[in-house]
Structure formats: C-alpha cells, structure tokens
C-alpha cells in the first residue's frame, strides 16, 4: 500500500467548509484514483460533520472532537493532529488556504521537515501545482523535490469533490491537551452575522475612492445583499478610512477570484488589478472613461456609481424575485 494522503478539513460556523472538499478533490487529482486518501476533522461536537465528510472521502476520516478544540488555536490544533501524522507519515497533506490553513500548514511542514506549496489554484500532469506569484501578475508551477509535502488550496478554484461511491469509516481519536499551552485564545469576535466571506464569495462588489465616504458603501452593501455577494474595497478606499483594511483587495490585501467582480468607483491601479483580474466576469462602473479599470472589464459603465448601483439593485431585485 502506498503512503496515505491526508486532507485536513476545516469547520467554520458549525459547517464543513467547501474549500475542504476542494482540498479533497486536489488530493484526488494530484495523487490519482488509487491513492489512499484519508481526512482528519478537528473541532468540538463534530460527529455529524465527520459523517458528512466521510460521505465524500471514502477512506478513513479521523475525528478529533474535544471542547478545547471549538475554535482554532495553533498549538492545540497541532497537538490534535500530531499523533496522527506520526502514525500515518502522509506523503501529502492538503488543506484550504484560509486563515486557519495558512497558519496551520507551515507548522505541519516544519514538524515533518516537508516542503509546502501554498495557494494552489490548479494541478497539472506530473503533480505540478500552479499558483499565483506577485498576487496574480504571474503564475508559477511548482513541484516537490523529495519527501513529503504540504499543499494549501485557494478557495473557489478547484471543483469540490463529488460524494464517494461508499462512505468512509469515521475513527474517533483522543485529544490530550498540551501540558503548557503557551498561546491562549481569550476572545473571538465574529464578524457581523450573515456576511459573505470575501475569499469564498461567488460575487464581489468593490468600492474605491469614488464611494467618497464610509456611508458611500451603503448602496454597494444593498446590492451585495440582493446578490448574496461580499463587499470589498481598493487600497484607496481603505487608506481614506472609508472602510476596514480587512476588505482590501489587491497585491496588499486579499486576492479574489469570484465569478463576478463589480468595481465601483475604482480607477484600477496595478496593485488593485493584481488582486482581482482573475475574476471570471469583471464589471467596472466609473465616472472617468479613461480609468484603467475599463481595460480589464468585460462590461463597463461610464457613469456615477451613486446613480447606477441603486438602479442595478432594483433590476436584480426584479429578475431574482
């Protein structure tokens, strides 16, 4: 039997994240149909989620269920999977390139003395992993030179895995909290309820300096509500204090690849384009017909976002009702 491959699934808001199914699919593509793909899920009260995951994995699903694992904490989560890694010695580990995955993956890579390829968007023949560099101004293909490897998968790029022919077996694993937890989570403040996550959003509505104020984001938020979209921003809007840096899209900030990206009042500086130009359909709304954003937009509207965006919201309300 070949060395197993391990997918580390992520729980967020009581749900299995879609990116975990994308990581599972990445494992299947990269390692072929015959690979022994197993998964581990870490959390508190996750019996149903482990069973749900097993429906996709087909192989073993290891569940580490403990009240102290209710939310992500670096040393606790490393402790939760460490024993399993030592037993399985997986050839590869796949996880989402999310806040949790980005933090956990390099620790596991260091622990195993493994290479890591981050933020993978597709996998080619010969186990070549494609990923953006310079935030998407270029792309590279990488491979592992030897030994084991850790891969983080960018949300929304690799199709999620289909259910397995037969569900896998769930194996419960014990968790022994580390003797000295040198990092303690004191408090977790969840962002405002119901908001769609930028990285995983299918539609992103983004505002730039043209929104003129924090209030100027309101029409964008209304459109986002109608479309189930996430709201983002350019560096200009963040620097001007119209919104939080957590919304920034660009080479600094987040890189997004939604189905539809609607840029409102954004001129299209090269550092912003890096963060969104791989979106499938780009729409630009800007008063300035010379704005560089129109050069990458599939559909452009030269006009005032404060006129156009509320009208768009109305139109979508009509057709989606």
């Amino acid at each position: 039997m070949s060395q197993p491959v391990l997918v580390i699934a992520e729980v967020r808001g009581g749900k299995l994240r879609q990116v975990s199914l994308e990581a599972l699919q990445a494992a299947r593509i990269a390692r072929g149909e015959g690979a022994d793909v197993q998964a581990v899920i870490v959390g508190s009260g996750i019996t149903a989620l482990a069973a749900e995951l097993a429906g996709y994995v087909g192989g073993k699903v290891h569940a580490v269920d403990h009240p102290e694992l209710a939310s992500y904490n670096a040393p606790a989560y490393v402790q939760a999977v460490k024993g399993l890694l030592e037993e399985l010695r997986p050839a590869r580990i796949y996880l989402g390139h999310t806040a949790e995955g980005r933090d956990l993956a390099p620790q596991l890579a260091a622990l195993l003395g493994a290479g890591q390829i981050s933020d993978v968007i597709s996998i080619g023949e010969g186990e070549l992993y494609k990923r953006p560099v310079y935030a998407g101004k270029a792309f590279e293909e990488k491979r592992f030179l030897s030994g084991s490897g850790v891969v983080t998968v960018r949300p929304n790029n690799i199709p999620p895995a289909e259910p397995a022919a037969a569900p896998g077996e769930v194996v419960d694993r014990d968790y022994a909290p580390p003797a000295d937890l040198r990092s303690i989570v004191r408090d977790v403040l969840r962002k405002a309820g119901g908001k769609v996550d930028l990285a995983e959003a299918k539609i992103v509505i983004s505002g730039g300096r043209g929104v003129k104020s924090a209030d100027g984001f309101k029409p964008l938020e209304e459109l986002a509500d109608v479309l189930g979209a996430a709201v983002g921003a350019s560096r200009g809007a963040c620097d001007a204090g119209y919104c939080d840096y957590a919304l920034q899209i660009g080479q600094t900030g987040k890189v997004v690849t939604p189905e539809v990206y609607i840029a409102c009042g954004i001129s299209g500086a090269i550092q912003h384009l890096a963060g969104m130009s791989q979106s499938r359909v780009i729409i630009a709304i800007n008063k300035d017909p010379e704005a560089p954003i129109f050069k990458v937009a599939d559909y452009g509207i030269v006009g005032d976002l404060f006129d156009v965006v509320p009208l768009l919201t109305e139109e979508f309300r009509k057709v989606l009702a």
Binding site: S71, Y72, A99, E100, S183, R186, V188, L189, R190, K195
Partner: peptide, 13 residues
C-alpha cells in the same frame, strides 16, 4: 489576530 474578518484575541508568553 485577523481571521477572515473575525477578530481573535490571544495571549502568549
């Protein structure tokens, strides 16, 4: 710590 819009407060030695 910023975790995809959530804010976690951590204490370390």
């Amino acid at each position: 710590r910023d975790a995809e819009g959530d804010t976690e407060t951590l204490e370390v030695t």
